[in-house]
Computed example of a mutant assay.
Amino acid sequence: MPETNYTVLFLCTGNSCRSVISEATFNHLAPAGMRAISAGSQPTGKLHPRAVSLLASKGISTEGYFSKSWNDLPATPDIVVTVCGSAAGETCPAYLGAVTRTHWGVDDPGHVVGTEEEISIAFERTYDIIRARIEAFLALPLDRLMNDQPALKAELDKIGHLPT
């Protein structure tokens, strides 16, 4: 268990789907002393309704969550995780603060076009990928790694390459 408070920022462009799923899932699973926030470089201003219903189906609250700009962060993060995917040439925002950064790319299920079943499967897959990565993150020896930034970055980068 971490002895210090750590804040993780999940960042993408719109802050309506993947970053919010990441924030809510992380906060649901994380021990005391750790929390996630999320933001976007160009926030949509609303949460994707399918992301909200997916999280509710997993027993994860989205109360108090909203789409927000990275200019309005309530705290300076210790770690920034970008979750932008490669679909449609999506460009990830680059957080420029002096923090440890890593990339855990996930394609945006909010852009999937297809049947209701295909869209639901895309959202479930996104959740499964994000949850597995968060669980791997929470299994790290963070008290040791937070004092060794190169080792922390290496471990975080490995998580971003876990099979999907």
Rank of each mutant, 00 (worst) to 15 (best):
123 F>K: 07
142 L>T: 04
122 A>M: 03
123 F>E: 07
142 L>D: 07
65 Y>R: 06
70 W>S: 03
86 S>M: 07
147 N>L: 14
139 A>C: 05
144 R>A: 10
94 A>Y: 12
127 Y>W: 14
136 A>W: 08
127 Y>F: 15
99 V>I: 09
95 Y>A: 04
97 G>P: 07
80 V>C: 05
108 D>G: 11
92 C>L: 08
135 E>Q: 12
111 H>V: 08
108 D>S: 09
98 A>S: 12
133 R>M: 06
108 D>L: 09
72 D>Q: 11
66 F>Y: 14
123 F>S: 06
123 F>W: 06
128 D>T: 15
118 E>G: 06
121 I>K: 10
71 N>L: 12
66 F>N: 07
138 L>V: 05
126 T>A: 15
129 I>N: 03
133 R>P: 06
142 L>I: 08
105 G>D: 03
104 W>N: 05
139 A>W: 01
117 E>H: 05
118 E>K: 13
112 V>R: 13
111 H>I: 08
144 R>N: 09
117 E>Q: 14
76 T>Q: 14
102 T>Q: 01
147 N>K: 14
103 H>A: 00
104 W>C: 04
88 A>L: 10
111 H>E: 14
107 D>H: 08
109 P>D: 09
85 G>R: 05
89 G>Q: 14
77 P>D: 11
92 C>G: 06
75 A>H: 09
120 S>F: 06
90 E>A: 14
102 T>K: 00
77 P>V: 10
81 V>S: 04
109 P>R: 08
141 P>C: 05
67 S>N: 00
114 G>F: 11
124 E>H: 12
120 S>K: 14
98 A>G: 00
102 T>A: 15
118 E>N: 10
72 D>T: 08
82 T>F: 03
119 I>C: 03
97 G>Y: 04
83 V>E: 02
102 T>L: 00
75 A>V: 15
119 I>N: 02
99 V>P: 01
145 L>M: 10
144 R>C: 00
146 M>R: 15
126 T>M: 02
76 T>Y: 04
84 C>R: 02
108 D>E: 09
118 E>S: 13
134 I>F: 08
136 A>K: 11
99 V>Q: 15
139 A>K: 13
84 C>M: 07
140 L>N: 11
146 M>V: 13
103 H>G: 00
120 S>Y: 02
134 I>G: 04
76 T>D: 14
96 L>W: 00
129 I>F: 08
69 S>H: 09
69 S>M: 07
89 G>R: 14
65 Y>W: 00
141 P>H: 06
94 A>Q: 09
75 A>Y: 12
68 K>A: 13
144 R>Y: 10
73 L>D: 08
136 A>H: 06
99 V>S: 06
97 G>I: 09
91 T>N: 05
101 R>Q: 09
80 V>T: 11
116 E>N: 14
74 P>H: 04
119 I>V: 15
93 P>K: 11
71 N>T: 04
109 P>Q: 09
104 W>L: 07
134 I>K: 05
70 W>F: 01
80 V>Q: 02
126 T>C: 15
125 R>C: 02
99 V>M: 09
119 I>S: 02
117 E>N: 01
95 Y>N: 02
83 V>W: 02
70 W>R: 02
123 F>A: 05
69 S>E: 03
128 D>M: 10
142 L>C: 07
96 L>P: 00
138 L>M: 13
130 I>S: 00
119 I>R: 12
101 R>K: 15
109 P>L: 12
95 Y>W: 11
141 P>G: 07
104 W>D: 07
134 I>L: 13
98 A>L: 08
